[in-house]
Design a protein around this nucleic acid. Structure first.
Lengths: 188, 188
DNA sequence: GATGAACCGGAACTCAGGTTCCGAATATAG
DNA sequence: CTATATTCGGAACCTGAGTTCCGGTTCATC
């Protein structure tokens, strides 16, 4: 239980990274449909090695999604740095959706019905939720978003957009329409 | 090939209906996750009997979805009967989403990435697509919807709403927001 | 009612994909 | 350089879910 302190052997550490990278790529391409054997192959390792580092498929995916969420949190923080509240909100939404567009696995994690959702798990490790709340509040206060807009609505919009990410990029049109409906009295 | 004319034996016809009903209910509850054995059990029959009537799981699901689409087409036609274009559009959207809400299987069919999509297959058998187009056009002409709104946008909105049908009915709020963004110059 | 074709039941089969296991290989301490 | 704990590889195993098969049963006809 507490032996987690002994540092990994050099090769083990290297391999762990390889697995994470390979799984990340494949997961981004095809979501949950990736197979453990493929991951091992792409990493240039045997399946046994994959299992040495991650208890099971679920644990591996959780690790990847955690990674993604950390990156997302970083982007969100950057968006929050914008002076202009409207710009901050747009940038946040943009980065979020652009990531989802590029990563079927991310979408899978966000749209899937898993319980407890991976999002919840990841939220406990990052302050992604808080950042969203702050950015939304700023945009509302500035009149850029309608007064009753909430962080929960951000989730609604995002999920809707992701559901439309199938090949073509119709989803951009979708976001356009949606932003129209969500606009406040002073949209700059 | 042409022997499809000999009428089914009475018990066979009855059983076929039972399978369709049982599968329909289960599919509505849990989507693609239903198992053939469960379907057989709920229908009070053996699996063999299920397979006697449907070549495989896919064929069974296709039959069910076909049924749903016929019902939907009927509802859509009814909506189109409304004098008021705005009302017709709202009714259409409402019935469509209400059906999706009540039926995980329907959602599964509409959101899933299957290719060729079940929607396409079903569209060839009904004139659902044409009805949507007509209703949308009427609402646009009346100024109830923005001028550039298309039937494709109806699909975008619907998919977005369905992606938010998870337990709670947040999706109603979603539709509210979206309709705001899609409104025309003369929303009655 | 007897006869045969159509139909039914459900145990057994198949196949895919996650997981385990252990002998072989390798890194690190002394 | 040797000893030993770690780590690796990948064939074998296990499980779950779709599908098949065929002896028994039921309907329709004469």
């Amino acid at each position: 239980m507490s032996a987690s302190e002994r540092p990994l052997r050099a090769d083990a550490r290297r391999n762990r990274e390889s697995v994470l990278d390979a799984a990340g790529e494949l997961f981004a391409e095809r979501g949950d449909a990736v197979q453990m054997d493929e991951i091992a192959e792409r990493a240039g390792l045997g399946v046994g090695t994959v299992y040495r580092h991650f208890a099971d498929k679920q644990a591996l995916l959780a690790a990847i999604i955690g990674r993604r969420f950390e990156a997302m949190t970083e982007s969100a923080r950057a968006a929050d740095d914008s002076e202009e509240p409207g710009t901050a909100f747009e940038e946040l939404l943009h980065t979020y959706l652009e990531s989802a567009q590029a990563d079927a696995g991310f979408r899978f994690a966000l749209l899937g019905p898993e319980e407890p959702s991976w999002v919840q798990i990841a939220s406990e490790k990052t302050d992604f939720g808080e950042i969203i709340e702050r950015v939304v509040q700023r945009a509302v206060d500035a009149g850029w978003l309608r007064a009753d807009f909430s962080a929960q609505d951000f989730v609604l919009i995002s999920r809707g957009a992701m559901a439309n990410m199938t090949g073509a990029d119709d989803w951009r049109r979708y976001v356009e329409l949606m932003l129209e409906g969500v606009r406040g009295p002073d949209p700059q």
